[in-house]
């Protein structure tokens, strides 16, 4: 039972991180990018590649994985967001991010293989630790640090305040001399860093697996929709709740209906409270 709780928390923390990455990108661009989960996947795969296959030391592999994640974030913004946002057509970004996500997932599948491969041990520890194994506490601790760090960044630093300003009203921010395009690119880089750190820390839990991206894109979104779009607190609560729920569902009913239960929960909540638990109510423009 305790194992269920710990697994749920670890997986939930990962979902929460995915929801946070969604939020960071959404705040400046008002785009829900389908590439969110793929940041985590890339970081996991490249972490395993750098450390496991190339035999690089752990810190180098860590920095390498972060570099890949950041690069991916910026490239996404440049290729799939910037040009598309210039057009007025709604939802075109959905297609462009879907295309980038497919390209990345399939290239990794072709290059890395479609089987999950093990992620190297990051800290020397033998495998008898049970629930105190690093594959559980490492992602939980890392993501807790990330959440606090993100909160401090957005509330205490000038750059974070500029992010918030762009998120509140991009036109007003531009009128005050903020380069909205640059801030948007930076926010995608930030989401890339966030996703890469979390994906690297959770590598031992998820394995280096090319299809992880799609799962995280979906579950991170569910966590976000449950918690409320745009709310970081909601993202964390939603992610942890979803992780605990799927873990206990697996424990009580077997692993077959994980996704069904998660989506059922989402549908139920959206019917009762469409803006999510902590989301701001949106008014429709006519």
């Amino acid at each position: 039972m305790l194992t269920v709780l710990v697994t749920g928390l670890a997986v939930g923390a990962l979902y929460a991180a995915a929801a946070l990455a969604y939020n960071v990108m959404y705040s400046t661009s008002k785009v829900l990018s389908l590439t969110t989960g793929h940041i985590f996947m890339l970081s996991g795969v490249f972490g395993a590649f750098f450390i496991g296959e190339l035999g690089l030391p752990m810190p180098v592999g860590f920095v390498g994985a972060i570099a890949i994640g950041t690069l991916f974030g910026v490239v996404t913004e440049f290729v799939a967001i910037r040009r598309v946002l210039a057009r007025s057509d709604e939802h075109l970004w959905l297609l462009s991010t879907l295309a980038v996500a497919t390209i990345v997932q399939q290239s990794v599948g072709l290059w890395w293989g479609t089987e999950p491969k093990p992620f190297p041990r990051l800290i020397p520890q033998d495998f008898s630790a049970g629930i105190w194994d690093q594959k559980y506490w490492l992602p939980i601790a890392t993501i807790a640090v990330l959440v606090v760090g993100l909160e401090l960044f957005q509330r205490r630093t000038l750059l974070g305040k500029i992010f918030l300003a762009v998120s509140e009203d991009a036109f007003a921010a531009r009128a005050r001399g903020v380069s909205v395009n640059r801030v948007r690119a930076l926010s995608y880089a930030l989401a890339g860093i966030l996703g890469a750190v979390a994906g690297f820390a959770a590598g031992q839990l998820t394995f280096a697996y090319f299809a992880l991206g799609l799962t995280l894109t979906l579950n991170g979104f569910i966590a976000l929709a449950v918690g409320g779009l745009g709310s970081n607190l909601g993202a964390v609560v939603g992610g942890l709740a979803l992780g605990l729920l799927t873990a206990s569902a697996t424990y009580f009913f077997g692993g077959e209906y994980q996704q069904t239960i998660a989506v059922g929960l989402l549908m139920l909540l959206l019917l009762v409270k469409p803006e999510g638990l902590f989301g701001a109510k949106r008014t429709r423009h006519v």
């Binding site: 462009s96 879907l98 295309a99 996500a101 497919t102 399939q106 072709l110």
Partner: peptide, 20 residues
């Protein structure tokens, strides 16, 4: 055929960016 889905993804990106 070897590229499979990669080809579809690339095609989608090109179409969305050039001729939406």
């Amino acid at each position: 055929a070897n590229l499979g889905q990669f080809f579809y993804g690339a095609l989608l990106l090109i179409v969305v960016l050039l001729v939406p």
